[in-house]
Write a protein that binds this DNA or RNA. Structure first.
Length: 832
RNA sequence: GCGAGAGUGGCGGAAUUGGCAGACGCGCUGGACUUAGGAUCCAGUUCCGAAAGGAGUGGGGGUUCGAGUCCCCCCCCUCGCACCA
């Protein structure tokens, strides 16, 4: 049946698609305004893509969701910005290039061409004149500018420390790129490596990044929750213990100051600095050194997998508890994280599960300092686990009897008064490590001078161009370090000989500001003109996958806030509304991926059925936020709808060019006409509401109902008939743009359907004149009755009593109560 | 372990606020038109039952005239965080 039959049909999709895509291009229909009306604009953003050379069903779904929104907003008369671009730096491009022996630049440029052509064939309403590619100097010049602005404010800094290292990709990874202890990209176990790195001080924004989530009602709760937990704010007390032998202070962070009298040991992370300064006996020092080596070799996943099993080694040293004056043992244990708090923990085995396990294993004393309540006392001998709830303090000197919040306050006040501690807020969020020891990325615009230290490259010298090198295979240090012409530089401060920074930036830096560049993509004097950006911002709707919840979506909020702080932006949040679409999987529920070989290309489906039918099939399968198991079965229904209902629609158009704003009064129409008129207006409302929620499946089903019920033979009024035809085309247009344009033109319009306005429903015609009322007796449905829309309760009751089914169930019973819900149902309660 | 979300016919999924459960579509069954049907059209299709009627939204309890929707307990699935002191 394939092509022979299809091309014989009245709808030749190939011709129609080419025609309209060419015309949209010619007329610049999707060209966004340079100075939009800020109160009547719509910034529709989809996440830009890695140019991998082919777009798959997941991309297709993402972009058609955004496309329908953009097109509908255009019909609503908004100034629309709907741009697209390429996240073109980064490991995937580089790795693919290495495999194929092509230079990453050539590979990327070629893929961008291919991918753009494909997207243009899908007919997505992108404004291609604003296309950006993060790997081109005209873009990354400004990525470097961003780095320097951060650097100038002390928010980009260099530090040595243990970092996540992927031995496969031979580069450092941000915490956000480590999933379950493995490299997000290649799945290799991540190691710890001591290295000097650039960081962005995102922690300086931690509070605002958490607090401002409350200003985002248009963001899904789950994303906000994930961000809150990722940032992980916790309030507590930092207490100074004193090392007995040296007098040095060791600070520990605790959220449970009320258990401070229960400390029986302290545990220090193997990576912690303080270890070097402990005056251990040679014997202890050797044991500690050995333990430290072992711990560093373990991956994070090994260290955290065995939640119950904790090990460590005693340093032979003691510290003094500033509250009780007690001597406590100093241990090294790798269940203590170096990167959180001070890297040292006060061990309270009686009231912390982890400390309990550790103390039990090494026979460290357990002290009870909290009781569940005044009557219940605990005995460490008989307990099976720590008691971690709040309760009155005991064995705690002057604090005995204080409980919960009050106890924490009292202990904290004491610390601050006596100078042995201070209230402190800690975050799980760490500063963002952005150096990458790879070739295909944005060079870090820093010159290292032996005399002056790291210096920003002067703005006039930007961009620091990524040199074209042939040897970019990863070897553990940046390939750029081996390019003398690149490395040689002059210190901008003293003019002496200096060296460039050989690392490139994490690609998440590039993607943190692309939405701003779209507002002014051609600007060669600034990253963007604040006037233009502020006219378009904030993004009205941002559509993308959930995968970026704790990475990109935090970073880009951080950038937006920073740029606001230095006076470049007015809004403190980049995006008003966020929408996460569901993934596209194959029929057995597996996520489509190249390595699994189960990728279905939208190109095939489009080639066989046309873009609009492919789009409709995707929309109709499931609401946009849900996962879709893609199967060709879904095409049948929507194809019938398009070919048998939508396309033929224009044949019943009577060419009256009706006033689309006209509302018909009940008296003007016959019964049949009135019925379809009501259906039309209900459909307009339902389609609009569905589209607001991005639920295209129900929008389509509403349209299907309308066209099912539409029988032109029963409609005498040409004006009504033509209104139905035209409005149906308009309603379908955001989802099936090519078909709609073609039909709109066939109906005699010379201007695009997307300039024709969006139908408004007649508020007097969304409810039928006759309505069905459900009649329940004791909560069970017994009959439905038809009454006039304005029927009173008395009328409804009378009609109900007239029903044989109802009276049969009332016979011999006593009516106790009647509840009438106007327009919906009558509930009768009887007894006997 | 902690946190979030979900569980509805054979299947994908409907059902803004408690108010006729299963819209729309797929599939299936029957029929029409046909040399033919993997085309098209019409009808039927939650389950039990010939019907009347009964049961029914993961399971159990509750609130209510009325619960897919609200509350409590449990089961299962998906996602996120996983020693954060």
């Amino acid at each position: 049946m394939e092509t022979g039959e299809k091309s014989g049909r009245k709808y030749d999709f190939k011709k129609v698609e080419e025609k309209w895509q060419a015309r949209w291009e010619r007329d610049g229909l999707f060209r966004a305004a340079d100075n939009p009306d800020h109160n009547n604009k719509f910034y529709m953003l989809v996440m830009f893509a890695y140019p991998s050379g082919d777009i798959h069903m997941g991309h297709f779904r993402n972009y058609i969701i955004g496309d329908a929104v953009a097109r509908r907003q255009m019909m609503l008369g908004k100034d629309v910005l709907h741009p697209f671009g390429w996240d073109a730096f980064g490991l995937p491009a580089e790795r693919a290039a290495i495999q194929r022996g092509i230079h990453p630049n050539d590979w990327t440029v070629k893929n961008i061409e291919v991918s753009r052509k494909t997207l243009q064939k899908v007919g997505i309403s992108f404004d291609w004149s604003r296309e950006v590619s993060s790997c081109f100097p005209d873009y990354y010049k400004w990525t470097q500018w961003m780095f320097i602005e951060l650097f100038k404010k002390g928010l980009a800094y260099r530090q040595r420390g243990y970092v996540n290292w992927c031995p496969e990709d031979k580069t450092v990874l941000a915490n956000e790129q480590v999933k379950e202890g493995r490299c997000e990209r290649c799945g290799t176990l991540v190691e710890k490596k001591d290295q000097i790195q650039w960081y962005f001080k995102i922690t300086a924004y931690a509070d605002r990044l958490i607090d401002d989530l409350d200003k985002l009602p248009g963001w899904p709760e789950n994303v906000k929750t994930m961000q809150r937990e990722w940032i992980g704010r916790s309030r507590g007390l930092e207490i100074d213990f004193t090392v007995e032998a040296t007098g040095e202070k060791i600070a520990v962070f605790t959220t449970r100051p009320d258990t401070v009298y229960g400390v029986t040991f302290m545990a220090i992370a193997p990576e912690a600095e303080i270890l070097r300064r402990l005056k251990m006996t040679p014997d202890s020092a050797a044991k500690v050194a050995e333990y430290k080596q072992m711990a560093l070799r373990r991956s994070d996943i090994e260290r955290s997998a065995a939640t119950g099993d904790k090990d460590g080694v005693f340093t032979g040293q003691y510290a003094i508890n500033p509250y009780s004056g007690e001597r406590v043992q100093l241990w090294v244990a790798d269940y203590v994280l170096a990167g959180y708090g001070t890297g040292v923990v006060m061990g309270v085995p009686g009231h912390d599960t982890r400390d309990w396990a550790f103390a039990r294993k090494y026979d460290i004393p357990i002290k009870i300092v909290i009781h569940p309540n005044a009557k219940t006392t605990l005995d460490a001998e008989t307990m099976s686990d720590a008691f971690v709830e709040y309760g009155p303090m005991v064995n705690s000197g002057p604090f005995n009897g204080k409980a919960g919040e009050a106890a924490i306050e009292a202990v904290s006040d004491y610390a601050e008064q006596k100078g042995v501690g201070r209230r402190k807020v800690n975050y799980k969020l760490k500063d963002w490590s952005i150096s990458r020891q790879r070739y295909w990325g944005c060079p870090i615009p820093i010159i290292h001078c032996e005399k002056c230290g790291p210096q920003a490259v002067p703005e006039g010298q930007l961009p620091v161009l990524l040199p074209r090198v042939e040897n970019y295979t990863p070897k553990g240090r940046s390939p750029l370090a081996d390019v003398p012409e690149f490395m040689a530089a002059v210190c901008p401060k003293c003019g002496g000989k200096a060296e460039r920074d050989p690392d490139t930036m994490d690609t998440f830096v590039c993607s943190s500001w692309y939405y701003l560049r779209y507002c002014d993509a051609q600007n060669d004097r600034a990253p963007f003109d604040p006037k233009k950006a502020n006219a378009w911002l904030p993004i009205d709707l941002y559509v993308g996958g959930i995968t970026h919840a704790t990475g990109h979506l935090i970073y880009f909020r951080f950038f937006n806030k920073f740029l606001g702080d230095i006076g470049w932006l007015d809004c403190d949040e980049p995006s008003e509304r966020l929408f996460n679409h569901g993934m596209v999987c194959d029929t057995s529920g597996e996520v489509m991926s190249k390595s699994k070989g189960n990728v279905v290309s939208p190109i095939d489906v489009m080639g066989r059925h046309g873009v609009d039918i492919a789009r409709l099939a995707m929309y109709f399968t499931a609401p946009s936020e849900k996962e879709v198991l893609w199967s060709a079965d879904g095409i049948t229904g929507v194809e019938k709808f398009v070919l048998n209902r939508l396309v033929p629609l224009v044949q019943s158009y009577r060419r009256t060019k009706p006033d689309l704003k006209r509302y018909f009064k009940p008296g003007e129409l016959s019964e049949d006409e009135r019925a379809i008129y009501i259906k039309l207006n209900q459909t307009i409302r339902r389609v609009g509401e569905s589209m607001d929620r991005l639920q295209y499946n129900t929008a389509i089903s509403a349209l299907m109902e309308l066209l099912r019920d539409y029988e032109p033979a029963k409609i005498k009024s040409d004006a009504l008939n033509d209104q139905i035809v035209l409005k149906a085309i308009q309603l379908a247009a955001p989802m099936t743009p090519h078909v709609a344009e073609e039909l709109w033109e066939s109906a005699g319009f010379s201007q695009s359907v997307f300039k024709s306005g969006w139908p408004e429903f007649d508020p007097d015609a969304v409810q039928g004149d006759q309505i069905e009322i459900a009649v329940q007796i004791n909560g069970k449905l017994r009959d439905t009755i038809k009454v006039a829309v304005d029927a009173s309760q008395v009328d409804v009751e009378a009609a109900a009593m007239a029903s044989g089914k109802v009276s049969a169930h009332l016979a011999g019973k006593q009516v106790i109560k009647k509840i009438y819900v106007p327009g919906k149902l009558l509930s009768i309660v009887v007894k006997g």
